[in-house]
Structure formats: C-alpha cells, structure tokens
Amino acid sequence: MYLQTDRHRSAIRPLTDGRLVSQAAALVGLSAWSCDLATEQLEWSDGVFDIFGLPQDTHFERRDTVALYCEESRDIMLRLRAQAIEAGSGFSMEAQIRQPGGELRWLRLAANTCVENGRAVQLYGMKQDITLERLRWDELRRLAENDPLTGLGNRARFQSEFLDLPAGSERLARIGALAVFDLNGFKGINDRWGHAAGDACIARFGERLASAFPAARLIARIGGDEFAMLLPSSVPAPALEAGLRRRLNGLVTRVEWRGTLIPIGVSAGLAFAGGTPEETFAAADAALYAAKRSGRNVLRVAA
C-alpha cells in the first residue's frame, strides 16, 4: 500500500531549518551535545547548561562535568562510553547528577559515535531532563510496593525482594534470616474497640518494628496483622536472635488510642537462611505457629 499524489497536492519536503529543529526539540526538553575525542572539547546547547546547573560563561572541562554524575551513574556512563567508542556505536541510559548547588537531577542521555577512516573521532547526542518523570515514577512505585496503613513494604514487595529470588543469587546471599510476626488476639481488639483502633495498633506496631530494626533489609506487612522482616547476613546468627529477643517486649507496649491504652501481644518465628526462600518462609511460619501455641510475646526459632 502506498500514498497517491496528484498535482493538486503538495509533496512532503525534508525539514532543513535548523532553528525549527531546535525549537521542536526544546518542546520536549531535548538538548544537543558533542565531544571531540581528540581534545575532549565539549559543545552544548543551552538546555544542557540548564540540566547541569552551569552558567554558560563558566570555564569547565569534561572531567568537571563527569564529576557531577552520582557515583553509580558515573560508573555506568563511563563503561558504556568506552564500549561505544571501541565499537563505533551508540548507547542510551538514565543518569542521576548533582548540580554544583547540591540539587539532584535525572537526565536521559543518548549518544552516538562519529567514525572517520575506521576511527572514532566524536561522540554526539541528546540529553533530556527527566527529573519530574522520575519523581512521578518513584511515587507510583512507592504506592504499588508499600502498605498504605504502615508505610512499610507490602506483600507484593516481599514477594519480589525475597520469595521470588533465585537460589544462589547475590541478593539472597545478603539475607541472613527471616522473622515473621503475628499480633495476638487482634480480632478481639477490633471487636472491642473497633476497626479504627485495630488500624492504629497495626500502624503503631509497624512503626516500632522499623524503629527497633533500622538495619533490616526489608520490613513488610504481608497480611492483616502479619509482618515479615529480612535481617542482614552481615550479622552473626546468635546476635540476630539475641537482638530480636531483647527487643520483643518493647514492640508490644500498650498503644494509646483516643485516651485508651490498648494492650497488644505478638508471636514471632525466626528462621535462618540456608535453603530456598520458600523453605525459609515455611520454616519461619512453622516457628511462628509454635510460638502462638506457647503463649503471648514468645519467639520460636526454626530447628
């Protein structure tokens, strides 16, 4: 299928007006840049100066701008740049930078290599400020991964950060133990004081967990009154268990709600990592139910 034209219609002409191209690019925040590889001389359009927070009359060299990239982004950018120069190809990435005034920004970087006589002589491309885009994305991700009542991780996040990890993965190796918690008699709180009081107890318990275990890799609410906590492998197992026992009573002091002090209790199960995430979770869950059968404010460790 093709388009038919006649003498009453105008053919589409190539756009050659450089000023119009620049204006159109500016509408979506695109700014051009280039780097001469022999001299490392940079050329920027106005928008790139704005992204980096640098006035156009400032004297700077390429190494000065590279230093503005945050460490992780800088390492990735330098690696991709070197690969592109060697292969005579291009790359794209999102990078975080810190302006001279301290403000953090995000940019999208697209680059290509100009090759002459088989040798890379220039890098060129576009940069785009995507700070607002990243902020919106981070907020959407926070809403998707966090429990709205406690602000902790939710079941989906616990699934992705633990249960779905493959055996032998680096992330799994950083997890030393899993602790699971269940509030005792929670239905009785709802029945006696109402669901608003129950929500207050859930929220307060979550705050206490986060405050008592700041080094935890993840604390998540995985059910109505159930919580899970991933503890780091950098702490020896005896110290993990001792720290959990030492802090258990502080987690269950009464919760003040509308002038009433509501008593809460908790059962806890602890399992040290070693098998698959599913096996560790099953072991911690079994220890939790053993604790619930034993009484209030009890910790049981999986065999």
Rank of each mutant, 00 (worst) to 15 (best):
D36E: 03
I219P: 00
L230D: 00
T131K: 05
E278C: 15
R98H: 14
T58V: 05
G250F: 14
M93D: 09
D164N: 15
A67H: 07
A303N: 05
L15Y: 08
L251M: 13
R258P: 08
A156C: 14
T276N: 12
G194T: 04
V298P: 00
N297K: 12
G206I: 01
N184G: 12
L123Q: 03
T58S: 13
R105W: 11
A24L: 10
L68W: 01
D46R: 12
N249V: 01
Q56V: 11
V121I: 12
Q122H: 07
H59I: 02
L288D: 04
D17T: 10
R108W: 09
L165Y: 06
F158Y: 15
F281D: 15
E278W: 14
S31R: 02
D75L: 09
E145T: 15
S73L: 03
A82S: 06
F162I: 05
A144D: 11
P100E: 09
L230K: 00
F158T: 00
E71A: 14
D182K: 13
A212E: 07
L240M: 13
K187W: 11
L135A: 11
C201G: 02
L104E: 06
R7S: 05
I12L: 06
N190V: 06
T5R: 04
R293T: 02
F205K: 02
P100M: 14
K292Q: 01
V21P: 05
E170Q: 11
R19V: 02
Y2G: 12
C114S: 07
T280S: 11
L109A: 05
A286S: 13
R74F: 03
L107Q: 09
A32M: 06
G102H: 01
A84V: 06
S92Q: 03
G90I: 03
I76W: 03
A303F: 10
V298E: 10
A220F: 00
N249W: 13
G224F: 10
E161Q: 14
A291F: 10
I85V: 04
G88V: 08
P238L: 15
L27R: 07
T5G: 08
L299H: 15
D57G: 04
G206Y: 01
Q83V: 07
D46H: 14
I130S: 09
A239C: 12
R246L: 13
A215G: 13
L27W: 13
